[in-house]
Write a protein that binds this DNA or RNA. Structure first.
Length: 428
RNA sequence: GUGAGAUUGGCCGAGUGGCUUAGGCGCUGGUCUGUGACUCCAGUUACGAGAGUUCGAUUCUCUCAUCUCACCCCA
């Protein structure tokens, strides 16, 4: 026997009936985001490695140890190939496309969304796979078009609340913070480092490492003993310049007016370097330790960092896998049942069965054709098992008389109908 | 990358150093060649991979893989 080939680590098959739920989520997103004037964008799964190094950040875990990256073959033997990577997230690709296609020349703001697979080489865990799916949206544009307005931040968050609502997801928490502009962030980092100097030796080993590599991360340490120390550290909020402070206040004001509940979490930090100012995260209790179902925020300097014009933006990414886990708590999506099982009896029924099936489908009635070698009892049993609503019996008698036996498998009731009348009977 | 626990048929799930092995669901056929879901009968298929210990291993040991959970990190 040939050896079995299995799906590779962290990759999984989505099978029916689960795919029904995924399609439901996708179509809900398409419908809802359209109402907010967002249009779909599809960017490649493979990008130049440098794109992620320059946007997500060279020193972030995502880039330096979790990316699937490789050197491509070059056309000329002498040349070195280009370094490529499977995208670990989608914002960088969207902003790259924004710059490459000069989308800033279009009127107004660009509002785009995407749904697609992302790849990170992490150790698999609940709610975490190496190929996972993100639903995201981005609003980008020149400042003159209003891209920096706090109204945009609030709009995006309100859209998310509407999505969770449509999907029937309850029990989420919205956490908000402002990371400040680039200078604020730099200034705060210095303040924080200075403050840490005296206390870090009393903290956990992870924090001692973080104090060196990424001081902001110390803030969301979960070790209980470290909490009092963390509480005593200076807050980001106090380092914000007046403009950023006002911006953040306005975002909160709009959310409050819309009755969207949120909690301020001054320790909420984002793991990607490009984030500035407003940062937010929706968490859900039912997900175990990977409780973040979506995260997002502003990235006012990203376009410039990628060689484009100044184009502030804000966006988010939803972990679709986690979103669906949260959904299962509250709601299950059922597949639409098959309308008709065509029980074709005996040799020579294939032609008639095929004609009837085509006719039904043209009338928007779903139909599948049974095996003509099955006998009637077995055909009916099969029809029931696969969940068909009706069985349409096609045999010698029907062909002769032109009247077909249509059996309602739910009630057991059976009627005789002319072929033209079949679709109408089935649709009720 | 670190730690802990798991891996038995299509699925769930018992169990054992030797007869290779429950049970349940499912599936196939018959009972019942044009009226289903029930019953009864029959059939159906497995010990993650590789080494080692042993007369003999699915069971014990080691290595690896995968899964699960947690850390890390993130969506």
């Amino acid at each position: 026997m040939a050896p079995l080939i299995k799906s590779v680590r962290g990759m999984r098959d989505l099978l029916p009936p689960d795919t029904e739920t995924w399609n439901f989520v996708d179509s809900t997103v398409h419908d809802l985001f359209r109402l907010y004037n967002f249009e779909e964008i599809r960017t490649p799964i493979i990008e130049d490695l440098q794109l992620f190094q320059r946007s997500v950040g060279e020193a972030t875990d995502i880039v330096y140890k979790e990316m699937f990256a490789w050197q491509d073959r070059s056309r000329a033997e002498s040349e070195k190939g280009q370094w490529l990577a499977l995208r670990p997230e989608n914002t960088a690709g969207v902003v790259r496309a924004y710059i490459e296609h000069k989308l800033w020349d279009k009127p107004g703001l660009q509002r785009v969304y995407y749904i697609g697979p992302q790849f990170r080489r992490e150790r698999p865990q609940k709610g975490r796979y190496r190929q996972f799916y993100q639903i995201g949206a981005e609003v980008i544009g020149p400042t003159s078009a209003g891209s920096e307005s706090p109204a945009v931040d609030a709009e995006v968050i309100e859209m998310l609340v509407a999505l969770l609502d449509r999907l029937g997801i309850q029990g989420w928490t919205l956490q908000l913070n402002s990371l400040g502009c680039a200078e604020d962030r730099k200034r705060y980092n210095e303040t924080l480092q200075a403050a840490l100097k005296d206390v870090v030796h009393r903290m956990c080993a992870d924090c001692q490492r973080r104090a060196q590599t990424n001081p902001l991360r110390v803030l969301d340490c979960k070790v209980a003993e470290d909490q009092p120390i963390i509480a005593s550290l200076p807050r980001m909020n106090d380092s914000l310049d007046p403009k950023c402070k006002a911006h953040f206040a306005e975002v909160q004001k709009i959310l409050t007016a819309l009755e969207i509940p949120f909690v301020l979490n001054y320790r909420l930090v984002r793991g990607l370097d490009y984030y500035t100012r407003t940062a937010f995260e929706f968490t859900h209790g039912a997900l175990g330790s990977q409780d973040a179902i979506l995260g997002g925020g502003r990235y006012d300097g990203l376009s410039e960092a990628l060689g484009g014009p100044a184009a502030p933006g804000i966006g988010f990414a939803i972990g679709e896998d986690r979103l669906i886990m949260a959904m299962k708590e509250t709601k299950s999506v059922e597949a639409r049942p098959l309308d008709v099982y065509i029980a074709s009896l005996g040799a020579g029924m294939n032609v008639e069965a095929a004609r009837l099936a085509r006719e039904l489908r043209r009338q928007n009635v779903s139909a599948t054709v049974g095996d003509e070698t099955f006998r009637l009892p077995k055909s009916l049993a099969t029809a029931s098992k696969i969940g068909a609503q009706y069985a349409l019996i096609v045999g010698e008698n029907e062909i002769k008389s032109g009247e077909f036996a249509l059996k309602n498998l739910g009630t057991g009731e059976q009627i005789s109908v002319r072929r033209e009348a079949i679709p109408a009977k089935i649709r009720g």
